[in-house]
Simulated scan of single mutants.
Amino acid sequence: MQHALAVVTVVVVGLLVGVEFAVAVFVNPIVDGLPHNSGLVARSSGARLLGRVMPFWYIGSVLLAGTWAGVAAKPVAGVAAGLLVLSVLMSVALLVPINSRAAQWTPETAPADWREQLGRWDRLHYVRVAVIVTSFVLLVLALA
């Protein structure tokens, strides 16, 4: 059972890291290069879709990592779980407010500073990605 929990935790957190990394490094830069305001439309759509899914994924990752940390009784797993908690706090306090606004934007209703707001979201997202990548590495180390 302990081995299964470890594998499920690493897979769930690993997929979360992969999606968030892809958004930061590939998806948003590609979308931002689209002509006219197509990038705004795509980012708004992505904000709505991922805004519905990611809370469950992040909370599930925290719960799995916390459970694994308790079962494994390895400090590195506890640090990994703590970093995932930090990523959730960052999300709620810093990224979700921007994302919630962006989810409602259309080319006609977006504020004049929409690019700056999305740029701020991107910068905060890079930090969050670094936090969850570090957490993932520590979870994998806890398996060793």
Rank of each mutant, 00 (worst) to 15 (best):
V11W: 11
G78I: 06
L34F: 12
A102Y: 00
N37C: 09
N28I: 14
G39F: 10
V12G: 08
A103R: 10
T106G: 12
E20M: 07
V131P: 04
S135N: 07
Y126V: 12
V25K: 07
Q2L: 12
V11E: 08
W114Y: 15
L50Y: 15
R101H: 13
A69M: 10
N99H: 08
V53Q: 03
A47D: 12
R48I: 13
V88Y: 06
D122V: 06
T134C: 11
A72M: 12
L83D: 11
V62D: 05
V7G: 04
V17W: 07
H3A: 14
V25L: 13
R115G: 03
T109K: 12
L124T: 05
V96G: 01
L86C: 10
L143S: 13
L49A: 15
G119K: 14
A47Q: 05
R123N: 09
V62Q: 02
M54K: 02
Q2C: 02
V133K: 01
P111C: 11
A77T: 13
W68S: 04
V12W: 15
V23E: 00
F136D: 05
V23G: 00
L138V: 04
A22N: 04
I132P: 00
K74N: 14
G46Y: 07
G33A: 13
L40R: 05
G33I: 03
P111A: 07
L86A: 15
V8N: 09
W121H: 02
R123K: 15
A47P: 04
I132M: 04
G14D: 01
A77W: 01
T109R: 09
A103L: 11
R101V: 02
G33P: 08
E116M: 07
D32R: 13
L94F: 11
I98N: 02
F56P: 00
I59M: 11
